[in-house]
């Protein structure tokens, strides 16, 4: 990752301890003008990491900077410039879209009502209908409309597309791509729906059991990783140090490798298929077992 660019998010050595779970030495950067996909299975530590950088939980160790500012000392200034979208709409059911505009126009200095109404029109959201009567997709669209209507430079999303149908997810992803076009905006998006991140993320960070497994540009990650398919006999000839983990079945093995170029030179003749992000995640999650079914 290019550390010389200005970063929207800088996380260094963040540790947070709970009973039975520890977020350990989390470090990664989100370059300005990019979208980072933060991937992990349920319970991996994505939400804890996001809550840490938003100062919703106190970290035990480490340093966090958002938009170049310390996340605690400059909390109020940061929060004027960022927007957060959660997996569930945190607005009361009795409000309507017009009332939300009135509330946020008082809270945010840079609230832009014209942008907000444009999003409402684009998402076809009724202005006077109570939020409680919205569908899940409509609620998420409203939350996103509110998030994008105060000129936020950084958008932090925690599982925001979970539970939405593919049509709505696609619509929302297109909005994010537009948001990033001027290269002044950045997005950190946590999800376990890797298909979405494969479409729009510039970089990805994998987290599992409170630790970062890998972090890098998405294209580099996809290019360097692959699934080597071979017979059980050929599998026995592969050095365990050369792969992340292997999925065995009665007929052969599917082996996740992290350096496609080197492995294809070393084990020439074996087929290496392209790996998708969700496959990479699954194999990394099972890395401690090394072999699994």
């Amino acid at each position: 990752m290019n550390d010389s660019c200005e970063n929207a998010i800088e996380i260094k050595g963040v540790t947070k301890k709970y009973d039975g779970f520890t977020l350990k030495n989390i470090s990664f950067n989100v370059p300005k003008g990019s979208i980072m996909g933060f991937i992990g299975q349920n319970g991996a530590g994505k939400t804890t990491t996001i809550r840490s950088l938003l100062n919703l939980v106190k970290i035990d160790e480490g340093e966090i900077k958002l938009l170049g500012l310390d996340h605690i000392r400059s909390e109020r200034a940061i929060k004027e410039r960022i927007a957060v979208v959660f997996d569930e709409l945190p607005f009361h059911d009795i409000f309507n879209a017009n009332q939300m505009s009135r509330i946020f126009s008082g809270i945010y200095m840079n609230w832009d009502n014209e942008t907000y109404t444009n999003y409402l029109d684009r998402f076809q959201l009724p202005r006077k209908k109570k939020i409680g009567q919205f569908s899940k997709g409509m609620k998420m669209k409203l939350q996103i409309a509110c998030a994008l209507s105060h000129n936020a430079e950084l958008l932090v999303m925690d599982e925001a597309t979970t539970g939405l149908d593919p049509v709505v997810r696609n619509e929302i992803l297109d909005i994010f791509l537009e948001y990033l076009q001027d290269e002044k905006h950045s997005i950190l998006m946590s999800s376990h729906i890797t298909g979405d991140l494969e479409k729009i993320a510039d970089s990805v960070t994998f987290i599992d059991r409170g630790q970062i497994l890998l972090s890098g540009y998405k294209d580099d990650v996809l290019e360097s990783h692959g699934i080597l398919k071979c017979s059980r006999r050929d599998y026995k000839d592969i050095d365990p140090a050369d792969f992340v983990s292997a999925r065995l079945n009665d007929y052969g093995a599917e082996v996740m490798i992290s350096d496609k170029a080197a492995i294809s030179r070393k084990y020439s003749g074996l087929i290496i298929d392209r790996a998708a992000l969700d496959e990479i995640m699954v194999y990394y999650v099972n890395r401690s077992k090394k072999e699994w079914r």
Binding site: K79, L89, H92
Partner: peptide, 18 residues
């Protein structure tokens, strides 16, 4: 109580409100 139920209390910490 409603703020806790709807998670506005959590969301409220992400707003520029002291």
């Amino acid at each position: 109580a409603a703020d806790i139920k709807t998670k506005w209390r959590l969301y409220g910490f992400t707003l520029p409100v002291t």
